[in-house]
Design a protein around this nucleic acid. Structure first.
Lengths: 237, 237
DNA sequence: CGTATTATTGATTTGTCTCAAAAAGTGTGG
DNA sequence: CCACACTTTTTGAGACAAATCAATAATACG
């Protein structure tokens, strides 16, 4: 309980929330661990549980009319899902939540508790509003990228954003999850992803060793990628 | 003043809001009219004004690094913009707002007033939260469509959603705004739009007279369009 | 170590964009 | 009301990006 309270009060979304509310939330919250390929929530449970990612990655997915799997979203540290079900929205589609990293740590909260606290705690509602608006902004940017950038540029843009913490002109990083999933995430086939990465690494001096990338000239990459975007590096999603 | 109050209290987003808050909002609100091509807000003003569309259409746009115009969003009746600027968000991009219909009617509200009321009125915050979550859902669906549907399907899907109020298997409707803009909105070139409409009208028995469409067999259209989607008609955005 | 999974490469097809030009539609002033 | 200019839409031909299908290579895993 004490550790859960400790965890909760450090989360962005609960910033500035009263001890009273935090205590109530913490008393119903649980911290859970999963491994790759675990289904965390099926399409029914997802409506009743709020999930906050403490560490690792999950994918939200559903099935299309013709049987293919559709990736709704991929969430990492500090992101959450379930807020879609706080209110009853006409024709709301559900999804399943699956762990895609080897060591996932999440915090879960019954939707009933979250709903109650949201209706009672004004600051909590404002925090959720801010968070949702930020999410909306990210989605808008993604939509923009998908409609005006090529596969190559989207990929470069993604890599570039992974570089942002770097203060130098070089960066060494690990792709956050499987290449095939990342491909889908970026709106392309795995084959296209593979070819694009090869092309990009050649054009922008990037060393590729499996899932490890050595970006030797961030500026060069930025030049290559950012022309068609409304933003210029560093742009931060 | 009385008519503004009347207008405001009927809007979805102000549903269930106390008379006190409504009065304050109404006293600062203005109703304005515009005609096609008027710039309603430039990229600076947009941060300080909340806009609610009462009747007509607007486009939100910005310029890309290489000079092209990027359509951020297109909003119609009951939609609004400016909520992105309620909170200070890192690296937030702005945009301009332009009227794209011949008889636009909007309600505008200084951001300062909206911010103040949001921080004071819990129900208002909840209403905005619900609205933003709905918007997030729509964006997610759009993203899905853009990455898995062809131009032809996106177009059919769009037309299908325009048909939804129809209780019969036929519908007669007018495209809500210019074809070239609609094309951009659907993530394709005007030329592709034109060709797709021709192909779709042939395949699904749709009569085209300029911007007027006669959908003679909605089911046929739905069959043609919905296979790759996670939703099935009627799906409602 | 062998099997299953994931990633890469190759050849081909499909979808969409690009550029150019023609056609249709809109608006203006004489 | 017509002639003219301007805008928007349509059509055509060609180039290009990405998907698809198929096969091989690399990697992870029990």
């Amino acid at each position: 309980m004490q550790d859960r309270l400790q965890t909760i009060q450090e989360l962005n979304i609960f910033n500035g929330i009263s001890a009273r509310t935090l205590n109530d939330l913490a008393s119903f919250a649980k911290i859970q661990h999963y491994k790759k390929k675990d289904i965390i929530l099926n399409d029914k449970d997802v409506k009743n549980i709020f999930v906050y990612i403490l560490k690792g990655w999950v994918k939200l997915f559903k099935d299309s009319a013709n049987g293919d799997e559709i990736i709704v979203d991929i969430l990492g540290d500090g992101h959450h899902c379930g807020e879609q079900f706080i209110f009853t929205i006409h024709n709301q589609e559900t999804y399943q939540v699956e762990c895609i990293s080897s060591d996932l740590e999440i915090l879960i909260l019954p939707m009933t508790v979250l709903k109650r606290q949201l209706s009672e705690d004004h600051q909590l509602a404002l925090n959720f509003l801010k968070d949702t608006i930020e999410k909306q902004y990210e989605l808008t940017l993604e939509l923009e990228h998908l409609s005006i950038q090529t596969a190559l540029q989207r990929m470069g843009c993604f890599i570039l954003r992974l570089c942002e913490q770097s203060s130098e002109n070089t960066a060494h990083l690990r792709l956050p999850y499987d290449k095939s999933l990342l491909a889908t995430r970026l709106g392309m086939r795995a084959e296209t992803f593979s070819r694009s990465l090869a092309k990009l690494s050649k054009a922008c001096n990037i060393g590729v060793e499996g899932e490890i990338l050595h970006i030797n000239d961030i500026k060069k990459l930025a030049d290559y990628v950012c022309q068609h975007c409304s933003q210029t590096f560093p742009c931060q999603s």
